[in-house]
Design a protein around this nucleic acid. Structure first.
Lengths: 204, 204
DNA sequence: GATAAAAATCGACACTGTGTAGACTTTCTG
DNA sequence: CAGAAAGTCTACACAGTGTCGATTTTTATC
């Protein structure tokens, strides 16, 4: 978290280490795409970032910490975008907008989102990050369902529980589709939107 | 795959190795529950099965192979049960029956099913097994949707695509719920059932 | 029930990847 | 420009994996 002193930070010199840190995360992301988490070794990351393993351990305590930082970086991006979403009163529009945004997120960050999901079990910190992200979605979906007339509450046929199930549906469907192609992602989005609409009682 | 010779296998002596093989898989399952995949070492499994690492490698070539065999054993169980399910003409009944069966499967085999899902990425063989299992579900859901009057086809609002999304919804929802408790699993089931029903146009 | 082939087991070894330690060099800062 | 902080490196100790050849146990057969 840089930039602590709001006053007195004329240009914030940008340490050499900050550049390296970014290089490490960038390399990690590239390797994740190339060979996947398991095959990727700490040595690989260091080499890609132009340093030795020893030096890398100055920045991060382990491979898991590197990936956690990478996920955190991406996930913060998601949260920002989530906050900056325009609110609509018409549920149909809200749903369409949300799905559109979701497609964009998965197009841009699919790799990291899949990685986060995969490692949620293994790496508790990543699990927390993703859980928080999912909660944002669930909250948003719940709000839309309620505005569409679904009764609020946590019973199986009430908004909260339904939102959770719909969230998992979207997560998993996009997870798989994003491994295939942009077209599949678009199709997946339309299917999810359709199910969301009918669940909200907004049959066409 | 034992029992090749339908004729001439009076009692099928049951080699010592068959017992060991089972012991290995049983131990593996127990350890998976205790410490999880990553923390579980080949040495642990061997020790639990009462042999040394060296001996274990006589049976399985790697930790992944052991777990793959374990998943295969469980998944075959699922397929069997899947085949043995009574067919109903009433979609509502079919959905209720399917969800009931799914709850039972996750209650009994949740650990292994979660493991299979987690390792689908990493271990191609497990990925195949799980993909096949999911396909069975998708096919079944598709059939029910069509019988309920949803148009057949792969377009986003047609039976096949919807079935896939619903399948992922159920998978993910049960995945999470089965980590919590039987009660959560039951609630999750009811939520999924409700969404499935409305998606099929069977509003109450 | 003796015996030879097949099945099963073991301990030791080589290898790969991880994480740590201490010495050394570069970069800041007053 | 001197001392501190930040960054880097090489070497090492350690965990776990998978392989090999020697050895023992089981099993089938006469």
């Amino acid at each position: 978290m840089p930039g602590h002193h709001p006053a007195r930070s004329r240009r914030t010199t940008e340490r050499k280490g900050d550049v390296r840190e970014r290089a490490i995360l960038d390399t990690c992301e590239a390797l994740l795409a190339q060979k996947g988490y398991d095959a990727m070794t700490v040595g690989d990351i260091a080499q890609g970032a132009g340093i030795t393993r020893g030096a890398l351990y100055f920045y991060y305590g382990s491979k898991q910490e590197v990936v956690t930082a990478l996920v955190a970086r991406t996930v913060e991006h998601l949260w920002e975008r989530s906050r900056a979403t325009a609110q609509t009163d018409d549920p149909r529009q809200a749903i369409a907008a949300a799905m559109q945004r979701t497609v964009e997120l998965w197009n841009e960050h699919g790799l990291i989102m899949r990685t986060a999901i995969d490692l949620s079990l293994t790496v508790p910190e990543i699990g927390e990050l993703w859980k928080h992200t999912a909660d944002l979605f669930v909250t948003a979906i719940t709000a839309v369902l309620e505005r569409a007339g679904i009764q609020a509450g946590t019973e199986p046929d009430q908004a909260s529980a339904m939102a959770r199930a719909l969230c998992w549906m979207i997560e998993r469907t996009f997870y798989h589709a994003s491994q295939e192609s942009r077209e599949k992602l678009q199709e997946a989005s339309e299917t999810c939107e359709h199910i969301w609409l009918t669940s909200a009682g907004l049959t066409i």
